[in-house]
Amino acid sequence: MAKILAVDDSASMRGMVAFTLRGAGHEVTEAENGQLALDAASAGGFDLVLADVNMPVMDGISMVRELRTRPAYKGVPILMLTTESHTDKKMEGKAAGATGWLVKPFDPEQLLATVKRVLG
């Protein structure tokens, strides 16, 4: 269905996201920090990027900012995986160019619903 890039330093979270999306027929590429995600993004047109905020090496906010400077990623939905406590992070993410967010914790159904929503 869609090509999705899942970025999270936590193997469990990333694994859960990838597993769920693959189960729904999507093609998922995994990356464990912002830098690796940028490398992966160079290779191929993703329809959607899901990114954690707090990551070592390069955090999600910096990653979005960088990604949005690339013409191929203008308008591509990028969702931040964030926690409720960080309203300021949501806004920081938005300011950097994120499309929206998915609040942790989320279960597979919520994930799929949000992905479906954003992919239209």
Binding site: S10, S12, D52, N54, L81, P105, F106, D107
Partner: peptide, 30 residues
């Protein structure tokens, strides 16, 4: 580094069915 670790635990705890742990970590994270 410490913050990131706490943050990951909090996010995962709630997702993987440990709400008490998430709420506890939330305090430390704050």
């Amino acid at each position: 580094t410490i913050f990131r670790a706490a943050h990951s635990i909090k996010g995962g705890a709630a997702t993987f069915g440990f709400p008490e742990m998430a709420s506890f970590t939330h305090e430390a994270e704050s």
